[in-house]
Design a protein around this nucleic acid. Structure first.
Lengths: 337, 337
DNA sequence: TTTATGCGAGAAAGCGGTTTCTCAGTCCGT
DNA sequence: ACGGACTGAGAAACCGCTTTCTCGCATAAA
């Protein structure tokens, strides 16, 4: 006859009664504490097994002050980049017995701070991807979020590892590549206006323009998804540019799709580049030239940093910088003479 | 001067002291209980605001017996299908103030049961995608998982909504489409051997073969990812089939990529079809003919079912069946004469 | 034989909330 | 003026588990 506690689930008390010991002893046995008589331990284990007892994680969490869970705030779960970060993070964390709680901010920057705080309280730490949040707000909430790992944002706060992709350098590499192919009129199909990583790209473009004053670089408004690229076809054609740097791979794919519909040859008439090297970038037609970002690795590293923080290993809590690697494929070619 | 409890965080006791009331009263105020004198309530609110007090969710969870979190077990976070389910689920759940905890089983079926149990105990309910688990094991663990929503599996257990995609019908529709184009030699590039949805597809194919005895259908071993399709090129060419039904879009894309490298024209020489209609399917070259599954919607529905279960609305806890819709694009064409 | 020593397990105190129980104090009716 | 109903807030129990505290008992030393 299986006793049931008030909640209807089997608790430590049930096991204690069945084994004829106190629940303190059951706890000791379940946690491998060896100060328990082997006979009693065996009895407890038998009782636990028979009742299929599994400790209630909420009770454990309250007593231990840890949840074995970390949170991640992402602006858009539909974006392959954040999917990859999530994947890398989740898998690395799972290796150490941690689970990941998701908070999707839907690109609503006002939500990001609230979600972050809420997620943080439920978890032992937080990985924050908040590209739209203002610097001021970011700095304000950071103290309440520790242990915290920041993705693609920097902070003056100490003890907050920041994993940032060098978008500026990546954009410069791509622009150089296009120039080397003979293109003299480029266009940048920008990302969301308030995007932090877009700002980094613009800085890179400024550096590029300073180094190549003879190259004409047109700025076009854009966004971060496929449709943005698709809708930008007119603007791109009007610009007269022959080398297009899209904000990311999705935008580039949308653009190529639109250009294809117009009968514009890529890379014959126009060269198109992306950014990120999402899994599908190599399978577009033509295969997309892009700047490869080791994003799953970044997700894994985020966990490494988080683990160090949680374990309070004061050591390598610095963060790291990722250099995109230029992946030259078939979407770029020599400029038309 | 801010007092701090043992854990270093601000707790209900700190607010109680600052407001000069008992913590019971603080709890009442924080939960909008109107049996509190307005003056006192205001004092408590002021104290809470000044201390930036936020209730500890773990404490609340223990007291209330709910975590406002649901878990989802997926076999592979890199698979666009599960990403879409996760997305739909997460967004719908967020509308009702619930968060989602992820458990990635890495396609290891032996892990699925353990992960499911663990995730379930941490959460108020579980959404289970376990395509590799045996029926016997599934039935065995189901009772301990309630409230549970099953994706693409069926069960004899009552009170377990099952959301299933009619893969069998989808495969038949695709096969019919190819036959209507004049193809008489088809090949099915199968999914993982122990996949439940693959079994459904095979049943659909059997039905199709029974209805079209004159059509030759070759079975080829496969898998579920891009590389599988890419590696299957030789087998596909050897089969002599002119209409290929790939297990899913990823496999189809890999196959098209491989065929392209061999100089085989799609759909001129061979027609290729996928399954799922993942976001990129329409942007392959040629655009992929596939069976569109409303998978994000399925994720949302999963939450609706879960919510009904959690709220114990005995009503529509039935689940539903999703009919794939044939999306004819450019990867299929008339059979070569 | 008596006392110091140690070991193992039960009792109890948290962890941070919610909620029931209890009991002053107030208001009203008689 | 006295008693009953009601109101509102504090005390305490409880959620399920971990861990310290405490103490009985057994063994060893004196």
């Amino acid at each position: 006859m299986v006793r049931r506690s008030a909640t209807g689930r089997i608790g430590i008390a049930d096991v204690a009664v069945k084994a004829g010991v106190s629940h303190a002893t059951v706890s000791r046995v379940m946690n491998g504490n060896f100060t328990v008589d082997p006979d009693i331990a065996a009895r407890v284990k038998a009782a636990a097994a028979e009742l299929k007892y599994q400790p209630n994680p909420v009770g454990r969490s309250l007593a231990l002050g840890k949840t074995d869970t970390i949170g991640i705030v992402v602006p858009d779960l539909a974006n392959p980049t954040f999917q990859a970060i999530l994947r890398g993070l989740s898998r690395a964390a799972a290796q150490d017995g941690y689970r990941v709680l998701i908070a999707d901010s839907f690109e609503v920057s006002s939500e990001e701070a609230i979600l972050a705080g809420e997620a943080r309280r439920r978890c032992d730490g937080l990985v924050l991807c908040a590209p739209r949040m203002s610097d001021a707000e970011l700095e304000e909430i950071i103290p309440s979020l520790h242990p915290l790992v920041l993705i693609n944002r920097t902070t003056a706060a100490k003890g907050v590892p920041t994993l940032v992709v060098d978008y500026g350098q990546g954009v410069q590499d791509i622009a150089e590549h296009l120039v080397n192919l003979g293109h003299t009129r480029l266009a940048f199909l920008a990302g969301p206006p308030r995007s932090a990583s877009n700002a980094r790209r613009l800085e890179g473009l400024d550096a590029f323009k300073a180094a190549h004053p003879q190259v004409d670089v047109t700025m076009l408004e854009g966004g971060s998804d496929f449709d943005t690229g698709h809708e930008a076809v007119d603007a791109v054609l009007e610009s007269g540019a022959t080398g297009i740097l899209a904000f990311n791979d999705l935008v580039a794919m949308g653009l190529m799709s639109g250009l294809h519909e117009r009968g514009v040859d890529v890379p014959g008439d126009i060269s198109v580049t992306g950014f990120d090297d999402i899994p599908f970038a190599r399978y577009t037609t033509p295969a997309l030239t892009t700047a490869a970002v080791p994003i799953t690795e970044l997700g894994q590293d985020a966990w490494q940093q988080m683990r160090a923080l949680i374990r309070q290993e004061g050591s390598d809590t610095s963060g790291s910088r990722y250099q995109p690697r230029l992946e030259v494929r078939a979407s770029t070619g020599p400029a038309r003479k």
